[in-house]
Each structure stands twice: as structure tokens, then as C-alpha cells.
Computed example of a mutant assay.
Amino acid sequence: MSLIARMGAMLLVLFIAVPIVSSTSIGSKNCTKKEFWSKDNDDCLPIGGPLTPPPPPPKGKACPPSTHYWGKKQGCCVPLNPSPEQGPPPQCRGAWVWKSTVRSCVPVPTPPKPSPPKPSNHHHNGHDNNGHGGYRQKRSALLKSRSAPLCPTGLDACPISGAKGGDYECLDTATELESCGGCTSLGSGQNCTAIPGAWNVGCEEGYCTVYTCAGGFKRSKDGKSCIQL
């Protein structure tokens, strides 16, 4: 083959290859150094989230607390950092579950409540079987209820932050993600979902454990945090 023929063949290969390369890299090369390309959102997103506070999600939706925020432009939850390769779905709060079709957390469906039992035909006249009045039994039962613990054995009564009237919830702080090892509303324990860079976490025997870190982070040796690369 002559030199001219060889050069012509090389130019033909370059002419064909250039558009192929540019078409497969559309999007990722358009991101700045402070952004990353999100395949799920098909957009460049700011690393670590936006500079201004994002808007809250609409009613009936929520975002994973430590890894996502609500993107008004995208209309869904968008990640703060790149998603881990072949990682599990984002982790939502306790009573919420990630729904990939709407890319946000939605409430876990609650099963229907059973029908209340029908009233008995037996009428109680306020006396016990011996004909004595039942006031003493009712009063002792009332006193017993007042002295009883707020929560069943094994659960801690944790005040609900921002609630009025002393409302509380009974939590198993040995496994509760947002009050691991103690009630965070009382200043004890740890909120495992607030660990920076964590993608999936757990609460094991009152201690937070990181299972997966987001892209740009690696799991610490003790498995309790994520270290930024």
C-alpha cells in the first residue's frame, strides 16, 4: 500500500472514531471540578450539595437524611456525592422506604387495623362476683398505671423533638438508627444516619456501624465512619 493510501486510511479511521468518542462522553465532561455526573439524574450535581439550603420535599415524600436532598429542578431526591458502584439502595428513615420509580422515600404502608371486638351482652353493674363494689379495684388499677414505666421493658422513652405536651416515643436504643445507644433528643446516643459520607448504616448493640460509603469516601478501619478521599 502506498504512503498516500495509508494516510487516507488513517484519516478515515479518525473521522469515524471522533464522533463515537464524543457521543459516549456527553454529560460527564461538561461537569466542573466541583461537580459530579449523576447517571440516575442525568445531570451534573454539586459535590457535597448546593451552597444554599435546598427546599423541603413535598408532602408524602422524604429524602435519605445523610446522603440526599430534595432537588427542585429534578423533582426528586438527588445525592450529595456519587452513588457507590453496585451499592444498595439509599437508606431512608425508620418508617420510610426508598422507591426508585419516584427517587424518594415514601411512607411504609401500614396494615389495616383489626375491627374492634363486639360488646358483650353481659352487663356489669359495678360490683364484683361477691356483690361488693368495684371502686377499690378500679382505683388500685389506676394507681398501678400511674406508677408503671412509660415504655415496656427493653425500650427507652425518648422525647419527640419539637413536640409539645411532653410527647415521647418508645425506642429500642440498641438498634434504633437515629437514637443509637441512647435518646438523641436528650443529648445521648448517636444518630447513625447523620454520619458524613455514609450510604448505608446500622445500629448494632447500641453502636453505629457503617456498611457502605458514598462515592469519594472510604470506610474507616473501625467501621464507624467514612473518610473522604
Rank of each mutant, 00 (worst) to 15 (best):
L143S: 09
T209H: 11
L80R: 09
K113S: 14
V97K: 14
K144Y: 10
L142A: 13
K224Q: 14
A5G: 02
A214K: 08
S225D: 10
V106Y: 05
A174R: 14
S179K: 03
T67S: 15
Q137G: 13
V210F: 00
P50L: 02
V13N: 02
H68G: 05
C44N: 05
T24Y: 10
C92I: 04
K72A: 12
A194G: 00
E169K: 06
P89N: 10
P111Y: 09
E205H: 08
S100C: 00
Q190S: 09
N30V: 12
V201S: 09
G215C: 03
C158K: 07
G182N: 01
K59T: 14
P90H: 07
V13W: 08
T101H: 01
G181D: 04
D167I: 10
P88G: 07
I160D: 06
A194R: 11
P57T: 05
L12N: 01
G206D: 08
K138L: 14
G94S: 11
L3S: 07
N191G: 05
K59V: 15
C208F: 01
P117T: 01
E169C: 02
G134W: 09
G60C: 01
P114H: 04
A174G: 07
I160A: 06
G189P: 06
P196H: 02
V210H: 04
V78C: 01
A9T: 03
T193L: 15
P90D: 09
P119A: 08
K99L: 13
K34G: 12
P82C: 07
K118C: 00
P114N: 03
Q74D: 13
G182W: 00
H132V: 11
G48I: 02
K164A: 13
S23Y: 10
P56L: 13
V13T: 11
C170Q: 04
A198R: 09
